[in-house]
Amino acid sequence: MPTTAPPRRRAEGAFGAVLGRIGFALAVLLLVSLVAAPDTLRGSTLLTMLPFASMLAIAAIGQTIVVQHGGLDLSVAGAVSLSAALVTKGAQEIGGLPAAICLTFGAAMVVGLVNGMLVARLSITPMIATLGVNALAIGVVLDVTGGVPTAAPSALTRITIERTLGVQNTVIAALVVLTVVGVVVQRTVVGRRHVAVGVSNAAARNAGLRVSAYRVAPYVVAALCYAIAGTLIAGFQQSPGLSVGEPYLISTVAVVVLAGTPLTGGRASVIATTLAALFLTQLNQLVLSVGAPTAVQYLIQSAVIAAGVATREVAGLQRAARHLRTRLRRRPPVTTPASIPSSSLKETES
């Protein structure tokens, strides 16, 4: 029977499931917060949490784009630090925030292009390429700043702290990045091809796509995301430390894993990434507010990521279960010599 168009669903298959899982986790976390530490959900506390969540979300969206292609961007730490350093030092030296921001974004594009070229043209493993570029970027940070942090221009600080129509500007920035990236990936020709190349390089090449270009672009987009995050962090912290980007290495990867994006590449949802960033930040907030030391924050983070992976990597569990079953079945056959020992023949050495 030919397919008659069934009711169209908005959430698409596995994509919807992933969104649902992190959404559910976030809901549970908010409920727990409500019971254990209702203070964390009060307006003023939420207002201190949201900027951090927003900046993490922006950086993690960049990381997501790279991970979609089976890569891993270790240069996030260097790129965020570099952006923070350039925007503060640039404003001081050149004078004027717009020029500093242009400089920052230009530098980020260079970082992204170098990453992408190393991966796509020189076929260096993404991790190693971005590891090397990270070192280079940190070198530039040290060189530009001379080892001393610079105060952010007051205009930038004002922008990052103020609100527009009652919404924090950092949150607005995160929403804008989320919307732009989400729409481009979902609705445009370029975005659709980006997703396809991430799902299968070989199939994309056989379908006649310009695969090498699509392998460079994600690193550039990611670097631009890091630049936005770095600029916001600089304004928010007012005098950003030189290694202000360092925590973002582990936390963006953690967010990507929590969002259910497979590290082998493929489909990803930037909405899930944003929810996961919110989840991780609120989790930290909750742990801190109940008086637990920072250490517990780490323990809970690792447990949560492990749990997230465990529910997703069902394949591993199934394999283990199958292994166990064959073990159990390997009982000595109780067959007479005349009969066919079919039960014993079924077993294989694994």
Partner: peptide, 20 residues
């Protein structure tokens, strides 16, 4: 059968937490 990066990312955070 969990990816080595995810595995050791989890233990990275775990060991750091234990130290702290």
């Amino acid at each position: 059968g969990i990816s080595p990066i995810v595995t050791t990312l989890v233990t990275f955070i775990l060991f750091q937490g234990c130290s702290l």
